[in-house]
Design a protein around this nucleic acid. Structure first.
Lengths: 249, 249
DNA sequence: CTAGTGCACTGGTCTGACCAGTAGGCTACG
DNA sequence: CGTAGCCTACTGGTCAGACCAGTGCACTAG
């Protein structure tokens, strides 16, 4: 066979603007806080119309790379990376793929358990202290302020995940957790007997912390999985629980 | 304290267009393959200018929800969900957060191991056969066609992850795998002694399959982690390997 | 019946305009 | 001299109208 041609993909003008700006940001040439030129300046530099520039900026904004504010004499601001775009995509996935709460919780069990496995090896003394503080916060809020309890709970898990040292696990747990909390928001407060649920949760957290302190990652992971199962199982239809129990062995 | 006011966020016109269309898509009112009205029709329906409509469409396109094609007599097409947007976000994360290959591989080890743990319980006979087929494909390609070997390898893991039954794990492994493959593309072919590397990989896969068939999830997960470590360790600087070995216990 | 043509659309881009908002300099007043 | 207030020169957000290249379809000529 002779020369092989590949179909030329019609590349829109705004796409090439996006590519160039994206490259500048991701390569670090434009760090967080840096300012892009104004739209009118950009249209000169790229030799395109303003609408093209604006469409490109919309895309960059949708990806969480820049933000623009009307009236700002400087141009758009380059943002530090935030998982907002990831969060958006995952929320969309949860809706269109009709992800069940069970699937989300299962995912969290997997990630948190792995994080604690790593954390049991890598945790610093300071992080252990932070975990202690978070549990104290849970104790203080038990049977009174559910929001504070939940916040302290989140803080504990955040320290664990941070101690695990894997950025991806960190971002994904963060995203999935907020999706889960969005799905069951308000439900926990209505749960019957939530006082005892909270107390049991605190006990579980203490056990996890003890295992982490002892460097026993396997136990910590097992305890954490069980803790999460206990905490979320009440929100799950009976039929979906076995899939989670499979992780408890 | 008296009435509390929250700052009113200036909501742009295009954002509200995005919200409405997004809601229609995510709620299922507009399924994959459905067509949006033309831009000129939309500007009438929303009572906004065409540029506003176009910026909204750009955002929706960036989120992977719709696609528009010039000349199409129908409007933009609603797409089935694809993890493309997720993939984009994660690739960006990998670049700006300067994720190391070790972190990515560690994440894959966590997800794949969890998937195989679930797969050992949930796999069907058909899936076992597919795994067998994939390994056969690896055997056929050993020491000859690296691309085919890699494809068969991917196929094996895909079956595993699908058998695990968790959509999130499925999507995330898919995304992370392609990021990893992008980072090391070309390197594997250059690896010294890649024939023996492939043969060892095949043996590992066979062991994993045997464990899955036996329903021994814990063993399968352990074997899979080791297999992945062995496969990718050669690409990692010595300093980054201990973080992965922590998962091997 | 079919091949070809033309029309009526589409999205992509540009131009020019207006508005509301901001920042920073200038001015007038204390 | 200091400061409160205004003014101007910008910004981004939006709209209107125009043109182009491309597409699909109906119609027509063979």
């Amino acid at each position: 066979m002779g020369a092989r041609f590949e179909p030329v993909r019609a590349v829109r003008a705004y796409e090439r603007v996006v590519e160039q700006v994206e490259e500048a940001i991701e390569s670090g040439a434009l760090g967080p806080g840096a300012r892009l030129p104004s739209e009118r300046e950009l249209m000169v530099q790229f030799s395109v119309g303003r609408s093209t520039i604006r469409e490109a900026l919309r895309v960059l904004q949708a990806r969480g790379l820049v933000r623009s504010r009307p009236g700002d004499p400087n141009g758009a601001e380059v943002l530090p990376f935030s998982p907002a775009a990831l969060h958006k995509s995952m929320t969309t996935l949860a809706r269109v793929a009709e992800l069940s709460l069970a699937e989300l919780v299962q995912f969290r069990m997997v990630l948190d358990a792995s994080a604690v496995l790593l954390a049991a090896r890598l945790r610093t003394e300071e992080q252990l202290a932070q975990m202690e503080t978070a549990i104290a916060g849970m104790r203080a809020a038990v049977s009174s302020d559910h929001d504070a309890f939940s916040a302290a709970d989140v803080a504990f898990h955040d320290v664990i995940v941070a101690a695990g040292g894997n950025t991806l696990i960190q971002v994904c747990t963060d995203v999935v957790r907020s999706v889960v909390l969005g799905l069951i928001s308000g439900k926990i407060a209505d749960a019957p007997d939530r006082g005892s649920l909270m107390r049991r949760s605190i006990r579980h957290h203490e056990e996890v912390l003890a295992a982490v302190r002892a460097g026993d990652g396997a136990s910590a992971a097992r305890l954490l999985r069980r803790s999460m199962y206990d905490y979320y199982a009440v929100h799950l239809p009976e039929a979906e629980r076995p899939a989670l129990r499979a992780l408890l062995e």
